[in-house]
Design a binder for these strands. Structure first.
Lengths: 252, 252
DNA sequence: AAAATACTTGCAAATATTTTCAATATCTTC
DNA sequence: GAAGATATTGAAAATATTTGCAAGTATTTT
């Protein structure tokens, strides 16, 4: 059996059982426990699963809500800080558009009852405000993009285009001096509608997004008013961004 | 069993029972009480639960604060049965509109991957299908009605009016021979749009809804194709409904 | 305030992981 | 197609983690 085939089988098996011990996997693909260990290490690096003591678990278990909410600890500290700093930029009683994506979600968590209206296409954000009747939450329509809990499609774009907000809190996949990019092509149209509907544009981008280019271009830099990032963002790019007239807030 | 799996089971069990003693948990996951203690400490740090003397208690998760979801035990048995019976009426690969309201939610829970499309204005229903990519879930836009997790308002009505589905699974506040009524006036417009957009109308009404009249009239009986109810529904009204040509399914 | 119950701490046994190394398999290069 | 180089595999020793237990401390109950 080939190494790749074996790893594929492990992945597939894990999709079914969610948790698997080393012995279980070793028996199933008929190699030594050592090899399974090595495979798991590789698969973890690939992001396909997470190692645990004695075995492995699925990254996004079906029983789990959406990819993030509680369990996503990827750069959690930075995202929390960014969330707090971005929320501080919002004035009381403003109307805020909140993008999908983990970073924007953390902003929502820190927003409290500050905003009077929230517009979002993210189900986790909607859930977060769901039982809070101090904020009016407007959810765009759309088709659920599985695992992310984002509403996409024409309905989402349409419902956004008729709206207006004071601020848009956005996230994205990458930023360079050429502009901002994002990975999910389906989101681009929606994000552009968000950018059009808001007066002030705040992008929340942790340091890993700097000098990175995702597949689809989203917008030029001149659309952006403010960028919120963390302390590890590369100083040179931050300076260059400031020179183009963008306000850059560095959260600690 | 691995540590992570064990902790996951503890979390999951707690979702059901709200509170569990150390012994109970220790027995359930088959480790010593000491280990359960350590697990609980970790889970508490993660924010998944709250420790108490002798056990652990669920920390009310925001996303579940909608009136129902798991915790609403009001006529739970009946609603489960109705949910199952109504789900059985759906043919594979149909497009299904699912109304907000607890009873309709239970139908969603039993639907599995049967429907190919689901249209809903209920956040709990959307969440339920959220990470399932075998079903395409279309969420109407709208403003969140707090505590119920329902999307209401003109946007919800608009997005529904352009759609079409094979079946609509509805719930309501009361039914008499004069028609069906509902309590939330905001929902009426949306429900009417749902009724217009679907070919077959199934109303799910537990026995407490029979011979009851809510504030706002929703529709006449001739719109209804099928009513699913439980065994305690009054026989006379059930008979009379059958005579008007409505199919009445009684779940046990 | 005493009894009962639950919690914390420290420790040894069990279990898992990393590291290392020899054996085998696979790929190059001639 | 054979010889050497490289990569992969399985197994064993060293290291680290987790688990269960028991003694001591805190908390609740009566």
């Amino acid at each position: 059996m080939q190494a790749e085939e074996r790893q594929f089988l492990i992945e597939q098996h894990l999709q079914k059982v969610e948790f698997a011990s080393l012995e279980e996997l070793s028996e199933r693909v008929d190699v030594s426990v050592s090899t399974v260990r090595r495979d798991l290490t590789l698969l973890e690096a690939k992001g396909a699963l997470r190692r645990t003591h004695g075995g492995a678990r699925l990254v996004a278990p079906k029983s789990d809500e959406f990819i993030f909410t509680a369990r996503d600890t990827h750069q959690l500290g930075e995202k929390e800080a960014i969330g707090q700093a971005a929320a501080a930029l919002i004035q009381p009683n403003q109307g805020v558009i909140i993008d999908s994506g983990t970073t924007a979600y953390h902003v929502a968590k820190h927003l409290g009852g500050k905003a009077s209206h929230v517009i979002t296409n993210s189900l986790p954000v909607a859930n977060h405000f769901g039982s809070d009747n101090s904020v009016e939450v407007l959810v765009t329509g759309g088709v659920i993009y599985p695992r992310l809990g984002v509403l996409v499609g024409p309905l989402a774009v349409e419902s956004l285009s008729g709206m207006h907000a004071d601020v848009a809190v956005m996230s994205a996949g990458g930023i360079t001096l050429d502009g901002i990019t994002n990975s999910h092509a389906l989101l681009i149209d929606i994000q552009r509608a968000m950018l059009k509907s808001a007066q002030r544009i705040i992008f929340c981008l942790d340091h890993t997004k700097f000098n990175r280019r995702s597949v689809s271009p989203l917008c030029e830099l001149d659309v952006v008013d403010t960028i919120v990032t963390d302390a590890q963002a590369p100083a040179d790019l931050v300076d260059q961004l400031k020179q183009t007239g963008i306000e850059v807030v560095v959260a600690d």
